[in-house]
Each structure stands twice: as structure tokens, then as C-alpha cells.
């Protein structure tokens, strides 16, 4: 199973984690920006599902059962698409 990062295609059509409504489930498509590495280390990987739990200065998300708080700047670098 190969996960091709068709980054150029997907960036245009996706929305960022910031734009997602609270309570929605989304799937991470692309990580785009300087904070990618750190995001991936902490579990925000492509193809994983995320639920946004809270908005604000820092967002709270649930990834693979873990609750994480991330800043808006970082959330801006996570491009997602809706699920279901």
C-alpha cells in the first residue's frame, strides 16, 4: 500500500484544521509547512483521522485516542478533508 503525497493536487482543494468546525471528524491529507516534522512526531500523520474538540488560541484535537493541544499556527499547516 503506497501513500502517495500528491501534495500539489491536494493543497488547493483541502481546508486547514483551523477551518474545521468543532466536533467534526476529518482525515489528514497533507502536512504543509515548517512544523510538519514535529506534527508527525506527535501523531498528526497523513491518512490519520482527527476530531476537533475545541477551538481558540490553541486547538484541542483527538488523534488516535490521544488528546493534543496545538497552536493555530501549527493547525494552519494541517490540511484535512471531511470524513463520512
Amino acid at each position: 500500500m503506497r501513500h502517495a503525497l500528491a501534495a500539489d493536487l491536494k493543497i488547493d482543494s483541502a481546508m486547514t484544521l483551523n477551518q474545521v468546525r468543532v466536533g467534526c471528524d476529518v482525515q489528514i491529507q497533507v502536512l504543509n509547512g515548517p512544523g510538519c516534522e514535529r506534527l508527525r512526531d506527535l501523531g498528526f500523520c497523513e491518512q490519520l483521522q482527527v476530531r476537533k474538540l475545541a477551538d481558540g488560541r490553541n486547538l484541542i484535537c483527538s488523534v488516535c485516542g490521544t488528546r493534543m493541544a496545538i497552536s493555530r499556527e501549527l493547525a494552519e499547516q494541517v490540511l484535512v478533508s471531511p470524513v463520512g
Binding site: 515548517p34 512544523g35 514535529r38 506534527l39 506527535l42 490553541n58 484541542i60 490521544t66 488528546r67 493534543m68 493541544a69 496545538i70 497552536s71 499556527e73 501549527l74
Partner: peptide
């Protein structure tokens, strides 16, 4: 030099 951003795990 490389801006860090807020990133925190909230354990149960």
C-alpha cells in the same frame, strides 16, 4: 532561529 509552537499532550 526556528519558531516553536505550542504543542501539548493532554493525558487522561
Amino acid at each position: 532561529v526556528s519558531p516553536g509552537h505550542f504543542l501539548l499532550e493532554l493525558p487522561p
